[in-house]
Write a protein that binds this DNA or RNA. Structure first.
Lengths: 226, 226
DNA sequence: TGTACATCAGTGAACGCGCGTTCACTGATGTAC
DNA sequence: TGTACATCAGTGAACGCGCGTTCACTGATGTAC
């Protein structure tokens, strides 16, 4: 499983920085392969690159800095993926759907990065991953903009765009993270699941002809199902 | 932070099993205090109980068995908490609300157990925490029953109770787990957040007078907001 | 009532392991004179 | 064109640490005779 060591040739004079890239790439691959952040040990990464452990310290102050750099890459990749999904889509509600689909897809394709970014402990590196960075990575600002646009166009019931974006994020994250955390649960097919979740967001569960405060009128109208 | 050692008196002849309980209790407290599963080392637990590390092995085969036992306790506590919340509530939609509120409350009050139970890696102890146990713990069956009841009463748009219960779980888990994972994000107040999420589930985002497939009619009707 | 003995509830010391990190070094390579 | 030298890109060996786990043991206590 852990390849012994490919033995990396020494870089030429001015090209020392290439090792930094190689380390990050190896760490990224290691994370995807093993699926556990704990697999990112300095020794394992050095092995994967084909270099001795102390070499890591030529480019990173300590292990934390390395892991943060790996995460930062994933954050960027995530944001790019989301942005690509809404390229040229004018309709705000449609943009929200596209971003949500891209969000889940990214999460399922990169479960470990997703886990570290959005399901990990807030303690490690909380300072580094500031609110703005996180908001950017998960496309929050773009969802917020789309929600505001939909509200302005009179498409949404709610009038608080920030709350709406938060709810959408919660919903999509809920589906994504449960699929990642409990893969053996008998979930619906991912597409069905996501489509249903988005439909839930858009249209809700209750019948349109029902009273909206059900506790006031218990089981009075037994509407027959279509 | 880590209290050195309270020094536990040796149990009397037939009461060896009391140590097992003490170990579990100490581990539970340790988990709540530190907020990290990695804090549950055999040595740390032994220290907290006031006993030597090998004593742990009188009652647990290895560390994994211990951690699983701790989790099992939390699973039970969670289920009891959810059941208590719907005690005597007849209306199914109301039951769903009550369970959701209890779910989030439990999650926020016991973030680390919640993290381990529902946000952790599926690898460790996946066999032990079978689908049925998980479903029981998170009250899935009770939500499922409530959804089915609501469907039978003609209260819900959907007709697939399992899908509905899954969506509710996803939604509530989404809010809970994001609050736990990203506590420094400028979330709405938890009650507002949850209420909005449940309202979202029930009634959706879109205006009721809007076409349901917005991609077919882009920005045609600029309904003015109330 | 006295005593030998089995059992119970633990303990002390040590094992091997992988970890992050440090330190003094090495050998190739470009550059100044 | 030749050579001394600074610099660059790393390496080998070792440090101390905390971990899970094992092993032989100890001392109190109940029980059989």
């Amino acid at each position: 499983m852990t390849a012994p060591a490919p033995a990396r040739p020494r870089a030429r004079r001015g090209e020392g920085d290439r090792l930094r890239e190689d380390i990050l790439a190896a760490a990224e691959r290691l994370l995807l392969d093993t699926g556990r952040e704990s697999a990112l040990s300095v020794r394992a990464i050095a092995d994967a690159v084909g270099v001795s452990p102390p070499s890591i310290y030529l480019h990173f102050a300590d292990r934390d800095e390395l892991v943060l750099a790996v995460c930062e890459r994933h954050f960027q990749a995530f944001e790019e993926c989301l942005l690509a999904a809404i390229q040229g889509v004018a309709d705000p509600v449609q943009r929200i759907r596209r971003m949500s689909e891209a969000y889940i897809r990214f999460g399922l394709e990169h479960p470990e990065p997703y886990r570290i970014m959005f399901m990990g402990s807030p303690v490690d590196g909380a300072e580094e991953f500031s609110q703005e960075k996180l908001a950017a990575a998960c496309g929050f600002d773009h969802v917020l903009a789309a929600v505001q646009e939909a509200i302005d166009a009179g498409r949404f019931r709610i009038d608080d765009a920030f709350l709406g974006a938060t709810l959408l994020w919660s919903t999509v994250h809920g589906v994504t993270s449960l699929l990642i955390a409990k893969p053996w649960f008998p979930w619906p097919e991912p597409e069905v699941h996501l489509a249903a979740a988005l439909d839930l967001c858009e249209r809700g569960l209750l019948r349109l002809d029902q009273p909206q405060k059900p506790e006031k009128a218990k089981k009075t109208t037994k509407a027959k199902r279509p």
